[in-house]
């Protein structure tokens, strides 16, 4: 049996659901030494800003259990360099570029979006709203529903009609569903989630923070359960909104977990640092996992974990109590789940 792994994000089709994650693949060239980046669902670029930016001082990273902290500070050469060099390179190779943009004001984002108009190779725009708003005492856009919608609205207005705009959400909020809803109301065609969680490491030898930037973003498998929870909650509230899921995906089964929670595609971030060919491996593993489960179309598993629970009737009587819990819904006779 061959599995149909194509996926659709807000009307745009992708040959498979495995993408890179912003800031973890630069603009594709380096990873292309290891595998053909055109074979990915899409290449999500490092967040592009209007001007060149030097980023933060070093040390910029600290390894943590099953994860890492980073404090890069959005170092990059600016959009002009991106449009002259990186985007044409991706387009020539037939790679689908998901251009991540970042700014300090609504106007920055609007300008960035308008510069991407009509450019060959742009498959999608991802709006990194986890940036300080210079017009609001450095408050991060993603933490405020109104600020987030302002940015998303400006980007949507300045982006070509056929190109989906995805807002990338931060998990560092009390109500991620609320922020998600504001972004969608403001015109987001979909949501990318999650960005890193704010964290900190103190070096016990120097007795100082390990990062020059003091705090940093936590990523990697350590954050996966948080990411799955975010995708689950948002998909439950907004089932029609496509999600690009990410956060610690290391294997095909991890990717499947995100699809089951409600993501239509996934980004592979930190794991690429330790395993540059991980995206290809993960796609293979995911395809095999679907095959093993008798699933013919990847699209059929999106959000599948939200279906009502079915009771698993144990073969042996429950040793603790004889009664089935009253809350368990029996929607069909238990069968495949019974261990044989």
């Amino acid at each position: 049996m061959s599995v149909d792994v194509t996926t659709v994000l807000a009307g745009t089709s992708f040959p498979n659901p495995v993408f890179t994650a912003s800031g973890c693949a630069a603009a594709g060239q380096e990873l292309h030494q290891f595998f053909d980046v055109a074979g990915l669902g899409g290449v999500v670029t490092k967040s592009i800003m209007l001007n060149a930016r030097s980023g933060r001082a070093t040390p910029r990273m600290a390894e943590t259990p099953s994860g890492m902290l980073n404090s890069i500070g959005l170092q990059g050469p600016g959009i002009e360099h991106f449009l002259d060099h990186d985007l044409p390179w991706l387009a020539e190779r037939g790679a689908r570029a998901v251009v991540s943009i970042a700014g300090g004001s609504v106007e920055d984002y609007a300008l960035l979006a308008s510069q991407l108009r009509g450019r060959p190779g742009v498959a999608m725009v991802e709006v990194n709203i986890s940036c300080p708003n210079v017009e609001d005492r450095g408050q991060v856009f993603a933490c405020d529903a109104k600020a987030s919608s302002g940015v998303v609205n400006a980007v949507r207005k300045n982006t070509d009609a056929g190109i989906p705009v995805f807002a990338k959400l931060s998990p560092d909020v009390t109500d991620i569903v609320g922020i998600a809803r504001s972004c969608v109301d403001a015109g987001a065609d979909g949501l990318s989630m999650i960005n890193t969680l704010l964290g900190m490491v103190i070096d016990t030898t120097t007795m100082r923070p390990a990062l020059a930037g003091i705090t940093g973003g936590l990523s990697g498998p350590a954050i996966r359960p948080v990411a799955v929870r975010c995708v689950w909650q948002v998909h439950q509230a907004l089932p029609e909104v496509p999600i690009l899921g990410m956060g610690g995906i290391r294997t095909g089964l991890d990717a499947l977990e995100f699809l089951l929670a409600g993501a239509s595609a996934v980004s592979i971030g930190t794991v690429v640092f330790g395993d540059p060919t991980a995206p290809v491996r993960i796609l293979d593993e995911l395809t095999r996992a679907l095959e093993e489960r008798g699933i013919e179309r990847l699209r059929d598993v999106v959000g599948l974990a939200h279906r009502p629970p079915r009771t698993v009737v144990p073969e042996e009587p429950d040793p603790v109590g004889d009664d089935l819990p009253a809350a368990v819904v029996l929607d069909e006779p238990a069968r495949a789940e019974v261990p044989s």
Binding site: A25, L31, G55, T58, R60
Partner: peptide, 16 residues
Amino acid sequence: EESMACGIGVCMTCVL
């Protein structure tokens, strides 16, 4: 010798 997360040029941690 700078602290490196990826070694292949994609993460921007190893700058000087």
